[in-house]
Amino acid sequence: MSQPASPLSEQEQQQLVRRIGRAMLPAFPAGWQRVRAEYRAAGRHIEVDLAFTGPDGQWRQVRPPMDVVQLFGQLRAGMYTSERGTWLSAVYELEAPAAFAVDFNAEDEPRWRNPPPLIGFQDELRTFPRADERIPDWLRQRVGLPPRVEPVAPGELRTAHVYDGRDEAGRPVVHRPAVDAQLRDALLAYLEAAPVVLAARNLDVDEFAPGEQDVPLNFRTDGTWIWAGAVPHYLRKHGLPPEPALVRHIRDREFRPAEVDEATRDRAVALITGA
């Protein structure tokens, strides 16, 4: 699936909405009174329900015409924005002779007939990426992203996530932009220059190289962030970048670590150990 080349204007969206309504009509017998279409999607996973009432007021399901399915998909792609992504479900209601209303939902999880597999939610964020703060908690959980982190007040410490979650088999999941070699070296220099505040003598298992046990069991802090020894280790060995917020922080500091006083080191240890 590819990201839409250009968004639809408001007028083009309205025209497409009317085309969807016209495309539904051949599916209904004469005398229909009300129509309800519900479209739900996550990546390649698509569900469409279409029903109508006649003079008796009873709802009857019908098979949605393929044109309706395709036009809904065009509308969803055309309403995409880089900030909020696009909607995940839409409800389109018609009332004879010509009244209609459409409701789009980009935040709440659709009421799936059959919940999509993990790859469906991953495809959704690859095809329609959105700002991190606009990814709802349920979708973050579905794709294995860590919970959304609220801004840290001055003086508070934030702990970096080594990776972004785990898939259904328990393997680490990563959704981060790659870094070039020059940036990687600058990040490594910063990450490994910060003072160690807690360390163990043994080494941990490399989760990206089964059977290898070479991951440092230590923690460092620069007075704002705390990170495990696995963060620079995986960056050096596997090219896995730190989480984007930590990368931005390091760049904002122009790759120059600050001095960390003893009180801040003690707070970091207390946060790591849960004391």
Rank of each mutant, 00 (worst) to 15 (best):
S2T: 11
P4Q: 02
L8C: 05
Q13V: 11
Q14S: 14
Q15F: 06
I20W: 01
M24L: 07
A27K: 04
F28I: 10
P29K: 03
A30I: 06
Q33T: 12
A37G: 13
E38Q: 15
Y39S: 05
I46N: 08
I46S: 11
V48H: 06
D49G: 07
A51D: 12
G54M: 10
P55G: 09
Q58S: 08
Q58I: 09
W59Y: 14
Q61T: 15
P64L: 00
D67P: 12
L71C: 05
L75W: 14
A77L: 07
G78I: 08
G78Y: 06
G78E: 07
Y80S: 13
E83R: 15
G85D: 08
W87Q: 07
A96C: 10
A98G: 13
A106L: 13
R113E: 14
N114L: 10
P115T: 15
L125C: 15
P129T: 12
D137C: 06
D137P: 10
R142V: 05
G144R: 02
G155K: 04
L157D: 03
V162F: 07
Y163P: 07
R171H: 15
V174H: 04
A178N: 12
A181P: 09
Q182R: 08
P195Y: 01
N202C: 05
L203R: 11
D204L: 15
F208K: 04
G211Y: 02
D214F: 06
P216K: 05
N218H: 14
F219Q: 04
G223N: 00
W225P: 00
I226P: 02
P232M: 03
P232L: 01
P232I: 02
P232C: 03
R236N: 03
G239W: 03
P242D: 02
P244W: 03
H249C: 01
H249Q: 01
R253W: 01
R256F: 00
A258I: 00
A258E: 00
E262F: 11
E262Q: 14
A263T: 11
R265F: 05
A268K: 00
V269K: 03
A270Y: 09
I272V: 15
I272Q: 05
T273A: 11
A275C: 12
